[in-house]
Simulated scan of single mutants.
Amino acid sequence: MSGQSTPLRETLNHSVQGVNKRRNQDWCSVEGAGTAEDPLILVVADGHGSAVHARSEIGARYAVDLFAVQAREFASLVRTEGPEGTPSLSWLMNYARNELPRRLIAGWQEEVLRHWSRHPAESMSTGGTEPRDDQKLLLYGATLIGAVMTPHLFVAWQLGDGELTVVEEDGKVSLPLAPAEADLGDETESLCSRHAWRLVRMHWAPIVTQDRAPRMIALSTDGLSKSFASDEGFTQFMTGLDQRLSEDGLESVRAALPEWLGKAARYSGDDTTLVAARRPTDAATDDSSTEHNITELCGTEPGVTDHGTIGRTSTTAHG
């Protein structure tokens, strides 16, 4: 509703550095309330972190910043009133599927090549051979998941690993952007991949009424999912997170965040980041069974426990 003061979504985000990692390669951002004038934008990026991708934390940050720009532009198109009214859903879908990924990847490549030109490798000052552009891009490689939500439309994009989790109003949990086939080993599609824009997966979900919109959406890097022994454990955690937000409230979950996310990072050994948005609920209730369930999910057995992560509604977080 235009001008409404109550947000359609409460948001959370946080990031934790992986065990024995030199720096956190993840980056994330959350902004907006989900209204037409203030669209909800969520994004996480995960720098690859290996020696081949020595500047990937920079690539991840550029990815987050550039996605936010493209997402704001897309959201403005959703509510544009021109001579012929707002764009049709089919036009918007085509833009989301093709134009936004093209612009995002092109912008990312321009930014990282510009960064290289300002900060070339030390070997260049000693007569080293100038690398090709594709070799430069490889240094900044990262994955990305981003989402935009307005009162009438929810769209998400993914390139590479990590998870988009959607909890529907009836409690059903889905991962709509999960790849048809799991990546082998540490291999994953990336912003530095050849023709990367063609590899972007998209989730398109018009919202008819708010009571039929997703109750919670969460974007997480693979450091969270890798801390589970099975996909079912990850799904059970997301169900528990949704329930705890409903029953205990936002601030209680925020307070528990460091422990949950820290355990995930210890078990997976990887940087672990999650951003989430949920429809606000009534005052939290004191339900001891909820605390018991979360305690079970955050147990002590590596590879078996479930973990969570949530942070503040700041614009950008980098652990």
Rank of each mutant, 00 (worst) to 15 (best):
S2V: 12
G3S: 03
S5R: 12
P7D: 13
R9T: 06
H14Q: 13
S15T: 14
R23Q: 11
N24E: 09
D26H: 04
W27S: 14
G34L: 07
G34V: 08
T35M: 00
E37W: 03
E37P: 01
P39Q: 12
A45M: 04
D46C: 09
H48A: 15
A51M: 10
S56M: 06
G59V: 04
G59R: 05
A68L: 00
Q70W: 05
R72W: 03
R72P: 00
E73V: 10
S76N: 15
S76L: 12
S76C: 09
P83K: 12
L89H: 09
S90L: 02
M93C: 11
N94Q: 15
N94Y: 09
L100Y: 03
I105Q: 05
G107I: 05
L113N: 08
R114E: 07
W116L: 01
R118C: 05
E122A: 14
S125K: 09
T126S: 15
G128Q: 06
P131H: 01
L137E: 06
L139W: 11
Y140T: 03
G141W: 00
P151S: 09
L159N: 05
G162N: 13
G162F: 11
G162I: 13
E163H: 11
T165E: 05
D170R: 13
K172R: 11
S174T: 15
L175A: 13
A180W: 01
E187I: 04
S190Y: 02
L191M: 15
W197F: 10
L199T: 01
R201T: 08
R201K: 14
V208A: 14
R212C: 12
P214M: 10
D222C: 09
L224A: 06
L224T: 05
S225E: 13
E232P: 00
Q236Y: 02
M238T: 03
T239F: 03
T239H: 07
T239S: 11
G240I: 01
L241A: 07
G249E: 08
L250S: 03
S252Q: 11
A256S: 14
A256P: 01
A256T: 04
W260F: 14
A264T: 07
R266D: 10
R266K: 15
Y267E: 09
S268I: 06
G269Q: 07
D271Q: 11
L274W: 00
A276P: 05
A276W: 06
A277R: 02
R278N: 06
R278Y: 12
T281D: 06
D286L: 09
S289D: 08
N293K: 04
I294Y: 01
E296Q: 14
E296N: 10
V304L: 13
D306N: 10
T309R: 03
T309L: 12
I310N: 03
S314W: 08
S314Y: 10
T315R: 13
